[in-house]
Amino acid sequence: MDPLIVTQILNILFGVTTLAMIALGLAITFGMLGVLNLAHGEFVMMGAFCALVVDRAGAPFVLAVPLALLVCGGVGLMVEMLLIRPLYRRPFDTLVATWGLSLLLRKLAEAGFGLGFNSVSVPLAGTATLFGADYPTYRLVLIVVCVAIIGALFAWYGTSRAGLKIRAMVGNPDLARALGMPVKRLATTTFVIGSCLAGLAGVMVAPLVPVHPYLGLDYVIKSFFVLVVGGLGSVLGVVAGTGVIGGLDSVMSAVFGSTQAYFTVLVVAILFLWLKPRGLFSHG
């Protein structure tokens, strides 16, 4: 195969898997809790800054993972208790409150690190050869790690007893409470898991993008579009939505350039929001 095509395919794959990773966290909080977390991107941003801190300290890159989990998980826990919990079942207020949260987190990052672009050195520098094409090793590893994490989460959700209980609680919380299931604790756990996933994604993309306080904005918007296109709360939806948005973005970028790609994604998302707000798989 033509090495150029292989590279492009890998680029598309990379775009789709990293987007899926970020959208997944958002899908979990939205699908399960009905919480539209506009600050999800800021958790990605925090994860990226964790990587930056570790990099600057000269510590091994892998240490960024536990740091990001700690920071994002901790902040997620606080946010759930102080901000999300009082506003459950008030989607509108949640939207505004998480918007405020995103502002706060951005401004905090700005106050701490400034508005400038920072770079994190790439771990596993160098390239690997795949089907005759040279491709950065780190990106290849990321594709594999993302697929593994997403696959493991879906498998766990679909087959484990804990996953079964979660599905029960999401589908019929009142009945779940009658069966003694701790619905409130689940909500907290779910939000924290969503935040941790975002943080993890942030660490992973940090070496590849300029790290700055507004980093999360683009990701969160794209992730929302994924949910909108795929429909809410279904596994299939996240996959399909990422395929459409991530695929469209990557293909258009490769063919026409990133501005046109961004433009197309926005138009598609607006059409979906307007005409099919419940996503691809809704009827009517």
Binding site: P91, F92, I221, F224, T259, F263, L266, A269, I270, L273
Partner: peptide, 29 residues
Amino acid sequence: VFRRDGGSGPFFSLITLALSMLTFQIASN
């Protein structure tokens, strides 16, 4: 937008957000 399923809830907000980002793209390009 208002007459569609999404109505005036969070989806309307997101549409206006996406539209303004679209406008930004047009303005800058």
